[in-house]
Design a protein around this nucleic acid. Structure first.
Lengths: 100, 100
DNA sequence: ATTACCTTTGACAAATTATGTCAACACAAA
DNA sequence: TTTGTGTTGACATAATTTGTCAAAGGTAAT
């Protein structure tokens, strides 16, 4: 179950692309795209951006989903995942504020 | 700058271990521990637990720091890091609740 | 100044993961 | 049957992570 995969598959179908055509358009093997859409392989940010562009979709939300999945992947089966996210958030906020 | 590294170094010194002795105790090369404490290499969860045990420290906080650093590492230089964390948190909460 | 510690550094090998390539399969529609 | 669809698995290649080692530099005591 991959939110990003589902979204991108939905966008692809809505845009009228077959897997093969979309894969050719962004210059990767069909097998890879198939697997990525089904969550069997991880997307790369680069490909997410290419697909967003191809489907004329807003890339921000897709990138956020992409990053979120990457993060959740690191935390799977961790007892303290939620606590870790909170700590990470705090540090990120602090860092951001500091950069101003 | 690594929170976890600093904490573990502090604990080590407080516990009276030299780098070498601590490394031997948890069965890794000194070089690795040195680099990990200074944030030049990433800790593994396994080693964090071993060190927590060695220093008789509570492991929960250390593991949380460990995970948090892992997450932040994935998000470094990302414009939407904070948004991604929020999404990840929401999904994790949902998943947790569902498991009950 | 030599001995005995300590920590750091960098080069390298080994192992593990990630990524790319390909060919074949199954299904349905024309 | 041919064409188009998506899926699968085996395999090679590339990239990253991890482990090993030897040497260097520092400090302090003898």
């Amino acid at each position: 179950m991959s939110t990003l995969g589902l979204k991108l598959r939905g966008l692809r179908v809505k845009s009228g692309y077959s897997l093969r055509k979309a894969a050719v358009a962004i210059d990767i093997d069909v097998a890879i795209l198939s697997k990525m859409e089904r969550g069997e392989r991880k997307f790369s940010k680069e490909l997410v951006l290419k697909l967003a562009d191809l489907y004329k979709a807003n890339s921000d939300e897709l990138v956020i989903d992409f990053l979120s999945e990457k993060v959740l992947y690191e935390l799977e089966d961790e007892d303290f995942g939620l606590e870790a996210l909170k700590v990470a958030e705090k540090q990120l906020k602090y860092k951001k504020q500091k950069d101003v």
